[in-house]
Design a protein around this nucleic acid. Sequence first.
DNA 1: AAATTAATTGACAGTTTTACTCAGGTATGA
DNA 2: TCATACCTGAGTAAAACTGTCAATTAATTT
Lengths: 143, 143
Amino acid sequence: MRLSTKAQYAVRAMVSLHLHGTGAPVSLRDIAVREEISLQYLEQLFSKLRRGGIVDSVRGTGGGYVLARTATDIRVDEIIDSVEETLVPVSCMDDSGRCSCSEQCVTHNVWQGLAEGIRGYLASYTLDDLTRQAQTKWSGPSA
Amino acid sequence: MRLSTKAQYAVRAMVSLHLHGTGAPVSLRDIAVREEISLQYLEQLFSKLRRGGIVDSVRGTGGGYVLARTATDIRVDEIIDSVEETLVPVSCMDDSGRCSCSEQCVTHNVWQGLAEGIRGYLASYTLDDLTRQAQTKWSGPSA
DNA sequence: AAATTAATTGACAGTTTTACTCAGGTATGA
DNA sequence: TCATACCTGAGTAAAACTGTCAATTAATTT
Ligand code: FES
Ligand code: FES
């Protein structure tokens, strides 16, 4: 049960965007260099992040991307949703935990509980949580 | 982030084995018919479940498989481990949560926490929990 | 002993998903 | 008008997944 690299890259890229952003737009080229992700792959990712309402784009010279909301208001599960990776561990179940089996199958409860656990955990993490950890980490063992 | 059908089938097959077992070995043919899983695919799965110490095999006429331990002592995470599906959501991290990044990467904590959550949840479920739910379910809404 | 049942093994192929790349186009600021 | 940077959709190679096939070994029943 692996998260796709797409989802992992999306989270890393968002951290990078927030961490190195001074309010001015950050270009994908910068992120690509810093995180060693191909520029063209990033374009694909950010196109979805924009449609997901996570970031806003600024075109033209000096353009790039900025957060669409404050970092304390962007949850990790939203980022993953935006790049279209499901967080439900079984294909028979939709996002709200409903399943074709009408709860009659023996394994329904495990999978539903697992789905809720994963969703809940990732929803408790904000982009700001991630970046603050990064900063305290780089400034030494102050935490 | 999907669990493979291999893992899902393994869990279902184990429930079937326990639920319809009277102590005597249950043949894969029975499980195959009941759960509508191909016999040959089941063979592949149970070969791994045996190596994982979850079931014991009995060869010859009247043979089949039996639980290697009591159902209250078989955890769902063990079943999934046996069929060789990882429960760690990122490839850079091993089962004990150690990672090549030496905890310096910004996303380490999220993934490690997620891994622990998934493992912990599935370890709290035993095979017996699953089958008891199935029985109360089939006997009506008594729960 | 012979026949039958059933586990056991390893190889193999079809399909799907992933993880990208490529080739263009469009909007903006200098 | 030129450089920058976002934007889009198509295409592709590799990997993973899902399952099948063939052949063997071991135990039991007749
Ligand atoms: S068939 Fe999906 S949980 Fe029951
Ligand atoms: S590189 Fe794996 S969590 Fe840091």
